[in-house]
Design a protein around this nucleic acid. Structure first.
Lengths: 351, 351
DNA sequence: TTCTCCATAGAACGCGCTTACTATGGCCTT
DNA sequence: AAGGCCATAGTAAGCGCGTTCTATGGAGAA
């Protein structure tokens, strides 16, 4: 009774008394079909509950209309906002979006690139900073080439290029500049001993933020104290624990530059628990401007990254199309979005 | 020079000096192949950078190994956690996950179900409450049948069943029970005038939460004051604005039951601004237990929903497989997960 | 030695759709 | 009135892979 296999284009054709080619034309509207015929076909489609088979369609040549995005974790707002940008822009261009998570595993990441390649995605977007690792970079490069050879594109979103000989497109944001700016802001508020806290030390993101931080210090002629730099992870837990330790050690500092907002949240919680007032005694700044920055009390001064826009740019770049307000779409392989300091309530003058 | 079309199985076969059938067997390991032959084939695959074509594979019969999930917004933690569960469980079963967002549009939602059907997803998971709307429900039902006829499954996650004659599977959570429990908790703390705030009035989620709230009131013999129920939306803005209005009107209440944590965040902000102490003067509770609940000060007492687990259940149900610790996997069509009250610091005794 | 039986490998078909290329009327030109 | 042209519709060749059925050679059995 129940037909487990759905109707095919041939079934529709038979029912409408036409050839399968005609049905295809009715569906794709890419060839003239008499109105009466069209109506007959449409009726047959409705009666049979026919739904095109995207695989057969993709096989037969029409592009697959799919983009893939690979992130660490959907729940992390940093990635979620980028994913939203990708999803929206993909939809805007009639593409479906496949979201995959690596949970931070390189192995998984490489496997996912392959999987997306198998699916013949129009583009695969790799999001987030990369760890320094020659072998790993080589693997990514190999896949970028494979994708390229197949007519697809690997887009690096928020991580540095793999070199000019690797066919990728890149969406960058000004990591170093943002860190420079917010550090400078802290310095102009009179802070001299600024603690840099968090971020895996081998991650490109951390490296860039730390570089910007150091450049600001240097420019203002401030010393780069080793004991004031504590890389680690991007977790709240890290911020919380490390601050507690440092407080116990009675380390001298008047401000904390947390490597991201999540770490800053941990920092603020530890400070609150220790009875240290923010920004009265200690000033705190973060990076990313994810929602938690506005939930914290005091609200967090941080660096804003146009995350959603980065996601959108990534698919535009990959698809080679123009944005909504863009005048023209030069075929570019890299774009860079700016970062801005958002001043809120977590910094006070040190004077 | 550059080959824009990737290598096919035939290319590999030619290069390895075997037939395409043999290559297929090497790849799928489902048929004996002599070691020497296998090595030759594997070498050819590596040299050519060959990647299977998932479409051809799907067309040729092997299942597509893909599940789709339709949510409102990736950035909203409520959905993000469910999506994470779906993504993880799908990966665990070798499936790729396609995430689509509706931005709250019914139209878009229906279109996405169709799109996922076209992709021949093993399952389509529809997440979040549904608005009462006969025509819309009928449309969803039609698609559920189409999917079913094609051997796929529509899973309703966090919304009521469409009736026994519609072939869907359902993952519920105890919306009514959680609302009942937290209202009762408020009552046992001495609160008599509890404001119910937020949630679209025609949404199944709101309806269930309000029902649980009312049942608790009734059970304790408390009056159901009309002026204490203000449905609206699930936004922070709504919570903020409405509380400000109500405060201005000098409405009498000692506790607020926000329809979700986001609304509660708005409520707390408005209260803070008005100089009303929480929980000293007014107690506040929310629903969902998303991360913001722990960022608020005081930390929010709320109802916890095992969101990620719901996502996992949804794919298990759809795929008809057992969970990690499950003894057996009876072929069921509906599961229900419980909700629990999480007591934190936003409620004080009214005495 | 001859026949049988595995272990392998190949040939070929079909999955459902797109798309040249081909075929067929009817209507317009001259 | 005859030749053409245009609007439609049909035919059929793949797209890349899995799979069934068939073929082949060598080892073991008798």
């Amino acid at each position: 009774m129940t037909e487990m296999s759905s109707a095919t284009i041939a079934d529709v054709a038979r029912r409408a008394g036409v050839s399968s080619a005609t049905v295809s034309r009715v569906i794709n509207r890419n060839y003239p079909v008499a109105t009466s015929t069209r109506e007959r076909v449409e009726a047959a489609i409705a009666e049979l509950g026919y739904v095109v088979n995207a695989h057969a369609r993709a096989l037969a040549g029409a592009t697959n209309r799919t983009v893939g995005i690979i992130i660490n974790d959907v729940v992390d707002p940093f990635y979620a906002y980028i994913a939203r940008g990708v999803e929206r822009e993909a939809t805007r261009h009639g593409r479906l979006c496949m979201v995959c998570c690596t949970e931070g595993s390189h192995q998984q990441e490489l496997a996912l690139i392959d999987l997306l390649h198998e699916q013949r995605a129009d583009a695969v977007i790799l999001v987030g900073g990369a760890h320094e690792d020659r072998a790993y970079a080589a693997e990514v490069g190999r896949r970028a080439r494979a994708l390229h050879a197949a007519g697809s594109t690997l887009v690096l979103c928020g991580r540095p290029s793999l070199g000019d000989d690797v066919p990728t497109k890149v969406v960058e944001y000004d990591n170093e500049g943002g860190a420079f700016a917010i550090t400078d802001y802290l310095i102009t508020q009179g802070h001299r001993r600024i603690l840099f806290l968090g971020g895996p030390s081998s991650l490109s993101t951390t490296i860039a933020r730390l570089a910007g931080h150091r450049r600001a210090l240097e420019m203002r002629g401030l010393p780069q104290a080793k004991e004031l730099v504590h890389t680690g992870s991007f977790s709240r837990r890290f911020g919380y624990d490390r601050i507690r330790e440092l407080l116990a050690e009675r380390l001298d500092f008047t401000a904390v530059f947390a490597a991201n907002d999540t770490v800053a949240a941990g920092v603020m919680q530890a400070l609150e628990l220790a009875g240290v007032s923010v920004p009265g005694e200690i000033s705190v700044v973060g990076y990313d401007d994810v929602p938690v920055a506005q939930e914290l009390r005091p609200q967090l001064t941080t660096v804003r990254i146009p995350l959603e826009e980065m996601g959108r740019q990534a698919v535009r770049l990959a698809l080679g199309v123009a944005g909504e307000g863009d005048y023209l779409a030069p075929v570019q392989t890299t774009t860079r979005v700016g970062t801005t300091v958002v001043v809120r309530d977590s910094v006070a003058s040190a004077y």
